[in-house]
Amino acid sequence: MDFPPLLSLRPHGADRDEEVAVEVPVALTVNGISQAVMLATPADLEDFALGFGIGEGWFMTRHELLDVEATPQADGIELALTVTAACEQRLKTRRRTLAGRTGCGLCGVESLAQLGSRRPAAIEAPPVMLERGALDHALSVLPTAQILNARCGGLHGAAWCRPDGKLVLAREDVGRHNALDKLIGALTRQDADVRGGFVLMSSRASFELVHKTAMAGAGLLACMSAPSSLAIATAGELGVQLWAFVREGRATRYA
């Protein structure tokens, strides 16, 4: 079932309708058990389910996710995930309910000890070698890949790019974390090799974005806005190259 990612409405005093990004609660259940509720844009939901699960360590491979069914509910959308028995058993040992949102925070982490348990392994692939002008080229192409954002102006973009800056795939969402989840899910479903390219985000660089990039096995994250101290420290620990303030003619490497 398709859900509208944009909504047309007429602002007060305006003489025409405008399109705004849809933001709804998306409840993820795994084999009938509630696992997470996130606020997201209802587009590319299968990608979102797989990418979110990879970032949370639910899935070891994409084949553990057997099916995704999206169903409208009174207050949002339910994403019913059917997973393998081995995956279900693994989740039962660490089940928790996540209260998600599009802003800052560590989704579902109830203690500092849990934060350490979620830490992915350091990237083992060779460092990503960017070609000259790659970041500038990818940045210039990103707006054309954000089809929904061009209509409403309210969505973050996450893109996968080759070392020469060629944009391969992009996803959008009101939340930057969700946009990256969707991108990771789409790449995983295509069995894409993410070791040689880089992730480009239209947002600031946060801990969660670095974490998700590492969980996906990618070795470079580039963001248009500023990094946080924890994002920089985490990128250094995990061997993820972190570039921020990626704007026309400039970029700063922090890790």
Score class of each variant (00 low, 15 high):
residue 86 A to T: 15
residue 104 C to V: 07
residue 223 C to Y: 03
residue 95 R to N: 10
residue 59 F to H: 06
residue 58 W to H: 05
residue 204 R to I: 05
residue 248 E to F: 06
residue 94 R to N: 07
residue 192 A to W: 11
residue 119 R to N: 12
residue 158 A to C: 14
residue 169 L to E: 02
residue 72 P to C: 13
residue 42 P to I: 01
residue 165 G to R: 00
residue 162 R to Q: 14
residue 30 V to G: 01
residue 149 N to H: 04
residue 116 G to K: 12
residue 48 F to W: 02
residue 247 R to L: 12
residue 162 R to F: 07
residue 99 A to P: 09
residue 193 D to M: 12
residue 60 M to W: 13
residue 4 P to W: 07
residue 244 A to N: 10
residue 28 L to F: 01
residue 151 R to D: 04
residue 109 V to T: 10
residue 152 C to Y: 01
residue 46 E to D: 09
residue 212 K to M: 13
residue 10 R to F: 14
residue 121 A to Y: 05
residue 125 A to E: 09
residue 74 A to K: 12
residue 58 W to P: 00
residue 181 D to F: 09
residue 83 V to G: 02
residue 141 V to W: 00
residue 185 G to F: 03
residue 219 G to V: 03
residue 212 K to G: 06
residue 56 E to F: 02
residue 123 I to V: 11
residue 160 W to D: 01
residue 223 C to V: 12
residue 244 A to G: 14
residue 81 L to Y: 11
residue 145 A to T: 07
residue 80 A to F: 02
residue 84 T to D: 08
residue 94 R to Q: 10
residue 31 N to V: 10
residue 248 E to M: 10
residue 100 G to V: 09
residue 111 S to T: 15
residue 131 E to G: 08
residue 8 S to N: 11
residue 28 L to H: 00
residue 140 S to N: 14
residue 71 T to I: 13
residue 225 S to N: 13
residue 174 V to P: 04
residue 82 T to K: 08
residue 20 V to N: 04
residue 20 V to K: 06
residue 171 R to I: 14
residue 139 L to C: 05
residue 133 G to Y: 09
residue 163 P to A: 15
residue 121 A to W: 04
residue 15 D to R: 13
residue 91 L to M: 10
residue 222 A to P: 00
residue 253 R to K: 15
residue 27 A to N: 07
residue 124 E to G: 07
residue 244 A to Y: 11
residue 6 L to C: 03
residue 141 V to C: 03
residue 223 C to E: 06
residue 182 K to D: 03
residue 113 A to N: 14
residue 15 D to M: 13
residue 150 A to N: 14
residue 126 P to K: 05
residue 115 L to W: 10
residue 22 V to L: 15
residue 170 A to P: 04
